[in-house]
């Protein structure tokens, strides 16, 4: 009895576009937007933040550098004449900081959506004119609304990011890319919960550029100059 013939055509089969190997990342139809962090790009399908699909960013509390992670990509989109929308942001955006990050302020739209955040996102996605949409949906956003948003995002050339609390990590979501962000020494630790392709093994860390140096400064006591109202009196 002869041994079974070797699967000679295996490499050909593997080279086909519709055959997917379990240990590779999916190839997206459109290249991602480089995130500005090489180690993160290597882990994201498409080599960067994806267009045409929701990206969920889950973090416990704001202010840990979650937006700074996205700023290089947003700045690149804005420089290429793209419109960026902030839907239902948690606080008011401080224009000088966004301008310093390289975003064109006349193409940065703030939408105070209130309860209509999901509707606004859907409309903005469907309009097809936005390069980036960052949304802070209300906490009780249900799976149906998420599904609608994902359908609206498909095929659009838009980077669509939803900020959601870390407690939602256990709840399934139709978003094809989900990341949990946590603070780490001088940057962020990212755990990719879900992506197209093989699951991520371990969290990766990203250093964020901060101009401040991590050292405890003792603030000098607050001193006020002489009250200004004294000056005119002195002149008089």
């Amino acid at each position: 009895m002869t041994a079974a013939p070797l699967p000679a055509g295996l490499s050909e089969v593997l080279a086909r576009g519709d055959v997917w190997c379990g240990d590779t990342l999916a190839r997206l139809p459109e290249a991602g937007i480089p995130s500005g962090h090489a180690q993160l790009d290597a882990e994201l399908p498409g080599g960067g933040w994806p267009r045409g699909g929701l990206t969920e960013l889950l973090c416990e509390r704001p202010g840990i550098g979650e937006l700074s992670l996205l700023l290089p990509a947003l700045a690149a989109l804005s420089v290429a004449d793209g419109w960026i929308a902030l839907v239902a942001p948690p606080w008011q955006p401080h224009a000088p900081a966004w301008a310093a990050a390289g975003l064109a302020l006349e193409r940065l739209v703030v939408v105070r959506a209130g309860r209509d955040a999901a509707w606004c996102c859907e409309q903005l996605l469907l309009s097809g004119g936005f390069a980036g949409i960052l949304a802070w949906p209300p906490v009780g956003l249900d799976a149906r609304a998420l599904r609608r948003l994902q359908v609206a995002a498909e095929g659009q050339p838009t980077l669509a990011c939803l900020w959601r609390p870390a407690a939602m990590a256990a709840t399934p979501s139709p978003a094809p890319l989900r990341l949990v962000l946590a603070p780490f020494a001088a940057g962020l630790s990212l755990h990719i919960l879900k992506r197209r392709g093989r699951p991520a093994a371990q969290p990766l860390t990203v250093t964020l550029p901060r101009s401040g140096k991590p050292r405890a400064l003792v603030c000098p006591p607050f001193s006020l100059p002489a009250p200004r109202s004294a000056a005119p009196q002195a002149v008089a």
């Binding site: 739209v109 209130g114 409309q123 309009s127 097809g128 004119g129």
Partner: peptide, 29 residues
Amino acid sequence: PPAGEGVMACLERLQGRLGETAVHTLGLA
């Protein structure tokens, strides 16, 4: 022609629903 209605038409409708001041861009002062 680009798909979708475009940026300005979309913002206008959002303004119609949410109020004129609820949709704006930023400027420096």
